[in-house]
């Protein structure tokens, strides 16, 4: 599903964010991306979204080299990749329902699809009762659920999560992880960058660790700390 082939990403100046990274993630996998700040996790996700283009090497999504995608084809790529962030990126002037519907409307989905898909996904994330609330009226955990609903409503093949629990307390975090796990069980590939040692240790999924842009560990049923 996702393949990095000798990928190097250098920003202006001599900052090297990723160094000759090779990695394959299969369809339906759940992968934790760990490492200290500045280790290249965000760059990894940006390359997948084609927010950035690799300096060297290839990034393949579903068999296609996305570095060579024309800029007009990038939206098509992003429709297949859902995205969740630490700061949720919800629109405060729209209700929960409208926030989720927005993701379908702006890619030109017809009304009847929007009307059936949105309630279904709100049910999945457990927010049916809050559909008409505004994001500011919700707790952090609920807001993150809305953002997950928005990322998943178009049924993407891949879900990327960048520190999705970074702003949440431990109890709420467990709920969000359960939700991501459920989404993963539908066959969606999930890649989650995180600092949260407890979740990684508890979930026992594949762990990819980056340090200064290099792959230092790739463990099938890993934990957060090295060598344990």
């Amino acid at each position: 599903m996702i393949r990095f082939e000798d990928v190097t990403k250098a920003y202006k100046g001599d900052v090297v964010a990723l160094r000759e990274l090779s990695l394959e993630i299969l369809k339906g996998e759940f992968v934790f991306l760990v490492g200290p700040s500045g280790s290249g996790k965000s760059t990894f996700l940006k390359l997948l979204l084609r927010d950035e283009v690799a300096t060297e090497g290839k990034v393949l999504v579903a068999g296609r080299d996305i570095g060579r995608l024309g800029s007009w084809k990038v939206p098509q790529l992003r429709r297949n990749i859902g995205c969740v962030f630490q700061d949720f990126k919800l629109l405060t002037n729209k209700t929960v329902y409208e926030n989720v519907a927005f993701a379908l409307e702006v890619i030109g989905r017809p009304k009847h699809i929007v009307r059936t898909q949105v309630p279904q996904i709100l049910d999945l994330v457990g927010l049916t009762k809050k559909a008409d609330n505004f994001p500011t009226e919700l707790s952090g955990g609920e807001q993150q659920r809305v953002s997950i609903a928005r990322a998943f409503v178009n049924r993407p093949l891949i879900l990327l999560a960048d520190e999705p629990t970074g702003n949440l307390d431990p109890a709420t975090t467990v709920g969000i992880m359960r939700l991501l796990d459920r989404i993963n069980r539908t066959g969606t590939t999930v890649v989650m960058a995180t600092h949260d040692q407890r979740i990684v240790d508890a979930m026992r999924r594949r762990v990819v660790e980056l340090d200064h842009g290099s792959l230092v560990r790739d463990q099938v049923r890993g934990v957060y700390g090295v060598g344990s």
């Binding site: 939206p75 992003r78 993701a103 928005r150």
Partner: peptide
């Protein structure tokens, strides 16, 4: 930002 994230085409934006 959200529109581009969820894959709205450039023309749509």
């Amino acid at each position: 930002e959200v529109m581009k994230l969820v894959g709205a085409s450039n023309w749509f934006v």
